[in-house]
């Protein structure tokens, strides 16, 4: 079940790192974010899409996300989960109070992502770009007493997306909408994935961006990993979900601000069924 954590971190959290990301930053301009993300889950979507309970597991991740414009059309992107804590609650008898199963935790570096975004087309308020991200197996893919405390999936993947966005005025407020489709090529026996997402936001009170997101990950079911050949790490493979979330980004100054995000999978397979929250601070160096 490691990848219940890892996938959410890599996919949902990375996906939610920056709004309006179909637009490149421009040469010499940058966006940096330091965030903390937390998921505490006592239920999960099974392989048949139903919800079943599980021992409460948590993931707390602190990460750095950065985008920097090398040229007007090309950004480099990096997601660095420099601290990930996986933990499980102790299982305690309701009758005797005795510990039935000890709680456990693991702290480690997570899977790092690096990539580039290239502006394909921009005219007035319409923009198209493509993004290529490499997921590096820098996390711990086996840990804890039973190997299920993991901060990475142990595989190198390449996610290629095509992004489109449009900015407009809504109720005389700056607004935008964007979408993307992507293909995630995974290795080490993991199934490849088709992904898509939508996002829309509006700027309120001149300092506050409020936005909503939807992100869908769909397994192509072409991997070879199963519960029987991965020593219990089946949750690595064939994860699917549709997650929706909302985020508020408040600019304290012109460049510095704070964000708060709430995201939850509304359907899925082999993924936790509890919401995650994240908060962070950012520097928007435009």
């Amino acid at each position: 079940m490691r990848q219940l954590h890892a996938i959410i971190v890599v996919a949902i959290l990375l996906f939610t790192q920056k709004s309006q990301s179909q637009w490149t930053n421009g040469k010499g301009k940058a966006y940096y974010k330091l965030a903390a993300w937390s998921l505490v889950a006592d239920q999960h979507y099974t392989n048949s899409g139903q919800i079943d309970p599980n021992a409460t597991r948590g993931n707390f991740t602190m990460s750095f996300y950065g985008e920097y414009g090398l040229t007007d059309k090309l950004d480099i992107i990096s997601y660095v989960p420099f601290f990930t804590r996986i933990y499980q609650n102790a299982q305690v008898s309701g009758i005797t109070g005795n510990v039935l199963q000890e709680g456990e935790s693991l702290n480690a570096f997570g899977d790092l992502d690096i990539g580039v975004r290239y502006l394909l087309y921009k005219k007035k308020n319409l923009s198209f770009s493509t993004t290529l991200k490499f997921g590096l197996p820098t996390g711990k893919n086996s840990g804890g007493s039973d190997g299920s405390y993991q901060t990475g999936d142990g595989e190198f993947n390449q996610l290629l997306t095509v992004d489109a966005g449009i900015s407009y005025q809504l109720f005389q407020k700056p607004s935008y909408a964007k979408t993307f489709i992507g293909f995630n090529n995974r290795t080490q026996g993991f199934s490849d994935e088709f992904q898509y997402g939508f996002e829309s936001g509006i700027k309120l009170f001149d300092k506050l961006w409020v936005l909503g997101r939807l992100h869908s990950v769909n397994s192509l079911q072409n991997g070879t990993l199963t519960a029987q050949n991965t020593q219990g790490s089946i949750f690595a493979n064939n994860i699917e979900y549709v997650a929706v979330g909302g985020e508020a980004a408040y600019y304290i100054t012109k460049k510095f601000g704070v964000t708060l995000n709430y995201t939850s999978a509304i359907s899925g397979r082999i993924i936790y069924a509890n919401p995650s929250i994240s908060g962070g601070i950012f520097l928007d160096l435009k």
């Binding site: 305690v92 309701g94 039935l100 709680g103 908060g279």
Partner: peptide
């Protein structure tokens, strides 16, 4: 931000009667 997230090991109470 850091303190607002609960990442401590807690207890699940099991009805083992």
């Amino acid at each position: 931000i850091i303190l607002s997230f609960n990442s401590c090991i807690d207890e699940d109470i099991i009805n083992d009667s």
